[in-house]
């Protein structure tokens, strides 16, 4: 069994780790759920331009005086920082598909060892629709997957091959869970970091995907800071 961690610790650890990936000036789109938290952990001194696919760039935190005419893709009220702007959905997805967005962070139901993602439908159960996810993962230069290592019932989410209908083929470049960080390059998955509370054997047990192990295998970056904060 994998150790049970507090839900807040899980979310914070994943968000914080992904935030460390971003560099000065990058344009980033954050999905709903854990990905939204990433903006809270951007290291001091690093300036990131956040894009919201419903039509805003230069997205900042919620303002003191809420205005329902200024919302993010998850419906949260946002502010627009100086230098930001609003635009229509066609321009927004032009920016996304056109490769003008450096990175997107999304949650997922399943991810495969070759970077396939399935995160928009469970046939026969829920039909929420793909929203902007399919365009984002195809258009953004890097796709970060923020996910718990297993489902609530303990089933593996990091698989050899996705079983649910795909969002896109071979697009994920990094998968961050509360216990592990994997990179996917040229169709091969590599475990580069793990949390100290699990062994490599435990990760193998709860990860169906085949992966290489980096040497040295490092502890998850930013963890100590996240948990003492």
């Amino acid at each position: 069994m994998l150790p049970e961690l507090d839900e807040c610790v899980v979310k914070e650890r994943i968000a914080k780790r992904i935030a460390l990936e971003f560099t000065e000036g990058q344009v980033v789109n954050l999905g709903i759920g854990i990905p939204t938290l990433v903006s809270d952990y951007i290291p001091e001194g690093v300036h990131i331009i956040f894009q919201a696919e419903n039509g805003a760039i230069g997205v900042g935190p919620a303002p003191a005086e809420p205005d329902l005419r200024c919302i993010g893709a998850g419906g949260r009220i946002i502010s627009i920082l100086p230098g930001g702007s609003f635009f229509a959905s066609d321009t927004s997805f032009g920016l996304i598909r056109g490769g003008h967005v450096d990175a997107t962070v999304l949650g997922t139901l399943e991810v495969s060892q070759t970077g396939d993602i399935a995160n928009w439908v469970v046939p026969g159960k829920s039909v929420p629709g793909m929203g902007g996810a399919m365009d984002l993962v195809v258009g953004a230069k890097k796709v970060y997957i923020a996910t718990t290592h297993t489902t609530k019932k303990g089933a593996a989410k990091i698989l050899k091959k996705c079983t649910l209908p795909l969002t896109a083929v071979g697009v994920a470049s990094m998968v961050v869970t509360e216990f592990a960080v994997f990179t996917i390059e040229n169709g091969r998955m590599t475990l580069i970091e793990k949390s100290p509370e699990v062994t490599l054997e435990q990760i193998r047990e709860h990860t169906e995907a085949e992966f290489d192990v980096a040497d040295p295998l490092l502890p998850i970056k930013g963890m100590e800071v996240a948990e003492s904060a």
């Binding site: 996304i96 598909r97 399919m134 083929v169």
Partner: peptide, 30 residues
């Protein structure tokens, strides 16, 4: 269901006299 970028571009095509367009979004999916 249409991916959101495809959805809006289909409307744009309808309004701007295009017979359709080519998008990489959704390739390899249902």
């Amino acid at each position: 269901l249409s991916p959101q970028g495809t959805f809006v571009e289909r409307i744009r095509a309808g309004g701007f006299g295009l017979g359709g367009f080519l998008t990489p979004t959704g390739v390899g999916t249902i």
